[in-house]
Amino acid sequence: MRNERPHDYRGAFDAGGTRTVRKREIPEVPAEPGLVVEDPASGFCGAVVAIDARDVTLENRHGGRRVFPLRPAAFLYEGAPATLVRPSPPGAGGAGSGTAKPAGPARSASGSVHVANLRARTARAARIWVEGIHDAALLETVWGHDLRVEGVVVEPLHGVDDLAAAVREFGPSPARRLGILVDHLVDGSKETRQAAAVASEHVLVTGHPYVDVWEAVKPSAVGIRAWPKVPRGTDWKTGVCDALGWGEPADGARRVLGAVTSYRDLETPLIGAVERLIDFVTAAHEG
């Protein structure tokens, strides 16, 4: 006979035999500028930029703003229900006086609103593919914070020679979107033909015009006037390192990747391509 542990009902009923209902405590969180919360009804996530007696204004990572009423337990803060309240006025509690203007929300390396005390979201089924490890490293440096907020995983392909087969194996669907970042996406290139072959309702291919993702880093960021011209038929990274005296491509990679600290170090075509991919793979999950 199996031994079963008896249930412990202590505290579940009051003296009259009526079941005790315990209400969960919902914390009140001061809506300080920059505080990041989510409206669970719409899925809108953003930082507090304004608050009054009735409403709070949130700004998402794209600069979009929405106004929400201040209702009890109406928001999610760090994944749990919370009630937003107006912060104490300057000088309250003996903290001093003055009318200093609140600082704007902190920004991540991509320029989006920085989520304080971030706990990474469970990874989505959607993915972003990039051509190689250097592309993945750049995305992590600049968009890593955003990707963890959104629960998006970036995977290097190590080339796009058999892209169609890889996409078929992945099996894109409405809940399993796929974004692909491709180098040298220009008219007439093999990359453009491969992209056209796999693009669909659930697959978005974006890219930049540069031969290699290194070239999408602004020359000034790595201390050069311009990227050197590499003869056709020569490996681009090898040719660059030879022309600049950087040693082997591995040495050049450390120099280039180490020079990037934010989106300001990247050329606009790469920034736009990555932002479109993040929007695409997360759109199916937004309210």
Rank of each mutant, 00 (worst) to 15 (best):
T268F: 04
D187E: 07
A106K: 11
Y210C: 05
A92P: 05
R86D: 02
L185E: 06
E150R: 02
V186Y: 00
G132M: 07
V142R: 02
F170E: 01
A47H: 05
A164R: 11
R121S: 12
A92V: 10
H184Q: 14
S97Y: 12
A221D: 03
R71I: 04
E191K: 00
R176K: 15
S88Y: 06
R61W: 12
R121M: 09
L181V: 00
K101T: 06
P105H: 09
R107Y: 01
V85T: 10
A120D: 14
S200V: 00
A41T: 08
A80Y: 08
D52S: 05
G207P: 02
H7E: 14
V130P: 10
L58S: 10
E25L: 14
V48L: 06
V213A: 12
Y210S: 07
R193E: 15
R19K: 08
V48S: 12
V113G: 06
A95L: 10
E4G: 01
E150P: 00
H202T: 11
P269V: 07
R193A: 15
G233M: 09
V167L: 03
I224W: 13
H62E: 14
G247L: 09
T238F: 05
P249S: 05
R148N: 03
N60S: 03
L157W: 00
A47W: 13
A125H: 14
R276D: 14
W236F: 08
R71Y: 04
P172M: 06
P69G: 07
Y263H: 05
G63I: 09
K23M: 03
K23G: 04
D265S: 08
Q194H: 10
E267L: 05
P102F: 04
G43P: 10
A92Q: 14
L138K: 02
G16D: 15
R254C: 08
L178C: 03
L257E: 12
G287L: 15
G247H: 12
V56M: 01
V37A: 11
H62D: 15
L163T: 04
G151D: 03
K237Y: 01
L270S: 01
A53H: 08
R124K: 14
A221Y: 08
G159V: 05
G207L: 00
D161L: 01
W246I: 14
A175R: 14
I128C: 02
L181E: 00
W236R: 15
L163V: 06
S189I: 03
R127Y: 04
P40R: 00
A259V: 08
V149K: 07
L185I: 03
V205T: 07
V213S: 04
R232F: 04
S110E: 05
T122M: 11
A196Y: 00
R124E: 09
G79E: 09
L70W: 11
G111H: 06
L157E: 01
R176V: 03
V113Q: 13
D161N: 15
R177Y: 00
Y210T: 04
P30Q: 13
D146W: 02
R66Q: 07
A82C: 15
V211I: 09
E32K: 01
L257R: 14
R121E: 12
E78R: 12
T268L: 12
G64L: 12
L147H: 00
G239V: 07
A74I: 07
A195S: 13
G96K: 08
A50W: 02
G79K: 09
A109H: 02
H62M: 14
A125D: 13
D161M: 01
V149C: 15
G63V: 04
E267Q: 14
D279T: 15
S173V: 09
G94L: 12
V274W: 05
A41P: 01
G287N: 07
A100G: 15
